[in-house]
Each structure stands twice: as structure tokens, then as C-alpha cells.
């Protein structure tokens, strides 16, 4: 075995655009997969030195500890506004936000909609795990109808608590949006597709083709009260039918760029 472990046999190693810090995420949480894909894309595109991330409030609040890039921390939901300011001051930098569903689709709804409507040349990575993870699994705007959370113990009742919001579809209707897609992190094939979409989103920004967002369906084993492996199955069975994967907006300029 030991003879196999030589540099010329190396197939995969931890991305260099990560710091050495272990993440605080629960075991099996796909936040880590999303982080890793971003880190791999930044490394492949050689962007680590000129990327500025904007961390949200939520589970990913400590994202700035894990990426070896410049990072700032935004007030709850305000990451797209902060990213707008940074990008306009430093147009040659790559600016991305990393936001959860509580941050982006609830308190930050105004910021994300207007950033997309203005066609801000930023990239948004949106993690949809159907609940507020950090605060203990409360109902989020993305919680599925009938889904039990700590604040909807009998299941989300759409009569009184309304319907979930499909962010990718909604933002895709805005003219400023250049690239808006939904991917999932529940199996190897979909993780590969998610990475490709993240790469495209950063390429869109690099070529100044407008607002780009990748929504990633993600798991929350601790708050779903499932094992990490069961969570992937749950995502596949319950979230995929409600949140179909697909390309919701590929602006003509993006399609023409053939990224």
C-alpha cells in the first residue's frame, strides 16, 4: 500500500484554496461538499488570490475560516448588498456570496431580488436545506408542505404558514439574471454536475455577463433527525420532486459564450 502513496499516483487531494481549519459542520452535512466544490473551482480557475467571499448568517457564518481567500461577514441576509458594494469598488475581483435559505430567502429576500434585478456581476451560492439549521431546525421559507420542523411540529400547514418559495425559478424571471440554475448534492453524479455549474457561474462573472446563482439542494442530518446517508435518500425522495433540478436562466450572452 505504502508504495502507492507517491506523488505520481495522486488522484485527489484536499484543495489548496482551503485553509487547514477543520469545519464546524455536523458530520455528513453537505455544506462541506459545497465548500469543497467552490474551493476546487477557485483553484482550477486560479482565482484564489483575487476572490472575495461574503459569508452569511446561518450555519455557514464561519465560512471565512475555511477558504484561503479574502472574506467578509455580512449582516443577516445582506450578503448580496455587501457583495454589490465590493464588486463595484473592485470590479477586477471575483466576488461571491455563500448563503443559506433562511438568510437568502427570508430576511435577505429584498437584497437578493434587487441584486439579481440590477444584474450585479456577482456569484451567489445558495444552500437550500429546507430549514434554519444553525438555530435548531425551525421552519424556513423553503420548508416543504407537511414537513415537520421544530417550529412546525405538526408539519408545515400551507393554510396558515404559506407555501415554500422556489428561489431559482423566481430569480430567473428577472432580466438582470445571467445564469440561474438548481443542482443537488445527494450523489456523486449530481455533485459533479453541481461543480460544473459553480464553475460556469464563476466564468459568467469573470466575463461580466451578469448575476449568477447556483442553488444547491443540501442535507441537514442533525435537524432532520436522520443519519447522513438517510438524509441523502430523504433529499432525493422529498426535495427533488418539489425543487426540480435544471437551468432556469441561461441568458443568450451566457449561452453564446459556450462556457
Amino acid at each position: 500500500m505504502a508504495t502507492l502513496m507517491v506523488p505520481e499516483n495522486l488522484v485527489y487531494e484536499r484543495p489548496h484554496s482551503f485553509t487547514d481549519a477543520p469545519t464546524h459542520y455536523c458530520p455528513g452535512c453537505t455544506h462541506g461538499v459545497a465548500h469543497r466544490l467552490i474551493a476546487e473551482v477557485l483553484e482550477e480557475m486560479n482565482l484564489t488570490e483575487r476572490t472575495i467571499g461574503v459569508a452569511p448568517v446561518g450555519c455557514a457564518v464561519f465560512a471565512y475560516n475555511y477558504f484561503d481567500t479574502d472574506f467578509v461577514e455580512a449582516a443577516h441576509g445582506r450578503a448580496p448588498a455587501m457583495a454589490t458594494g465590493i464588486k463595484r469598488c473592485l470590479p477586477d475581483h471575483i466576488v461571491f456570496t455563500y448563503q443559506g435559505d433562511g438568510d437568502l430567502a427570508s430576511i435577505g429576500m429584498g437584497e437578493i431580488v434587487h441584486a439579481a434585478a440590477r444584474g450585479e456581476n456577482i456569484t451567489v451560492i445558495f444552500i437550500n436545506n429546507a430549514n434554519y439549521g444553525m438555530t435548531g431546525g425551525q421552519m424556513a421559507p423553503t420548508t416543504l408542505p407537511g414537513m415537520k420542523t421544530t417550529s412546525s411540529p405538526d408539519g408545515r400547514d400551507v393554510e396558515t404558514q404559506g407555501y415554500p418559495i422556489r428561489m431559482a425559478e423566481m430569480l430567473a424571471t428577472l432580466d438582470g439574471a445571467g445564469y440561474v440554475v438548481r443542482r443537488s448534492l445527494h450523489d456523486p453524479a449530481n455533485i459533479r454536475k453541481a461543480k460544473k455549474a459553480i464553475r460556469t457561474a464563476f466564468e459568467v462573472q469573470e466575463r461580466k455577463l451578469g448575476f449568477s446563482m447556483v442553488e444547491l439542494l443540501s442535507t441537514c442530518p442533525s435537524n432532520w433527525n436522520l443519519t447522513p446517508v438517510e438524509s441523502l435518500k430523504w433529499l432525493e425522495e422529498h426535495m427533488l420532486p418539489f425543487y426540480p433540478l435544471g437551468d432556469y436562466k441561461v441568458a443568450p450572452a451566457v449561452a453564446a459564450a459556450k462556457i
Binding site: 502513496m5 488522484v11 485527489y12 484536499r14 459542520y25 453537505t30 465548500h35
Partner: peptide
């Protein structure tokens, strides 16, 4: 294994 690992804990080698 490395592709699904949320913690980038795995380094993979393959004999050429």
C-alpha cells in the same frame, strides 16, 4: 469517496 466527503479528509492514489 473523496467526491462525496464533506470534509475534504481523503487523499486518493491510483497506481499508474
Amino acid at each position: 469517496c473523496a467526491l462525496v466527503c464533506p470534509d475534504a479528509a481523503i487523499t486518493v492514489y491510483r497506481e499508474v
